[in-house]
Amino acid sequence: MSQEVLTHEEDGVLIVTINRPEAKNAMTKAAAEGIAAAMDRLDAEDSLRVGILTGAGGTFCSGMDLKGFLRGESPIVEGRGFGGVVQAPPKKPLIAAVEGYALAGGLELMIACDLVVASAGAKFGIPEVKRGLVAAAGGVMMLPDQIPERIALELALTGDFIDAPRAYDLGLINRVVDGPALDGAMALAATIAANGPLAVKVSKQIVKESRGWPMDERYDRQAQLIAPVFVSEDAREGAAAFAEKRKPNWKGK
């Protein structure tokens, strides 16, 4: 894996760090490929329960590397899109830990994550129009799914930034922390990782997919997804652990 992306595992959490602090973690082809490889690992390894995506040096990601763009480089991975994640996020939960700026493609990386923990001083925006570009990696399409359309339009058309308190009020981020965003994200990840992995995975899938299901098919489609969970070893273990007043020993099956 490229040194532009670093990974390490801690208590079932895969921490993925964009490691280009000298360039405000601007996204390159190599970094995108590194993130894609980390997402493959997150989904493939049973010991990993949650992923965290963050940036080195006090910035999450400032967007596409414009120098690379001028050289004709595209920070896109086939099948996964910009940054190796925006078009095909992992099946397991992914948390963005945001310090500093999440701008342009950086914001698009962030909104591809399931949950967001941000430091109090973080800033967010899609300023592509200021450079004659369009936030085409999900910004203009996905942002209106996460915040009111008029606010999404304002961000897309002005290119202006919002701060962490405003982003929290809009529901764009989950938590604002006074300390390091990674610490806050690890606390959230630990809460998730303590739960049944099959149930967590299917719960995410249903939340993400069900809005596109026809109303008269929703419960039938949900039933197909949850049936294996309710007859799993983990479901029995969860009930037994509750009755015996102990922590569950999840097997993921």
Results as ranks from 00 to 15, higher is better:
79 G>A: 07
97 A>L: 09
65 D>T: 09
186 M>G: 03
105 G>K: 05
150 R>Y: 08
16 V>A: 06
38 A>N: 09
22 E>W: 15
109 L>D: 06
182 L>S: 09
152 A>R: 10
63 G>Y: 08
171 G>R: 11
157 L>D: 14
234 D>F: 02
161 F>C: 09
83 G>R: 02
149 E>C: 07
35 I>F: 09
227 A>H: 08
202 V>W: 08
63 G>T: 03
13 V>G: 07
61 C>W: 04
157 L>F: 12
252 G>Y: 05
48 L>Q: 12
248 P>R: 12
96 A>H: 05
208 K>M: 13
172 L>F: 11
234 D>Y: 06
190 A>I: 01
14 L>K: 10
6 L>Q: 15
250 W>T: 06
84 G>Y: 05
6 L>H: 15
32 A>S: 10
42 L>Y: 10
127 P>D: 09
169 D>T: 04
39 M>I: 05
6 L>M: 15
27 M>L: 15
7 T>E: 15
173 I>Q: 12
106 G>I: 05
127 P>F: 11
249 N>D: 14
250 W>D: 04
120 A>P: 01
7 T>W: 13
81 G>Y: 00
51 G>D: 02
215 M>R: 12
61 C>Q: 07
178 D>V: 08
204 K>L: 10
165 P>Q: 14
7 T>F: 11
20 R>E: 03
187 A>M: 13
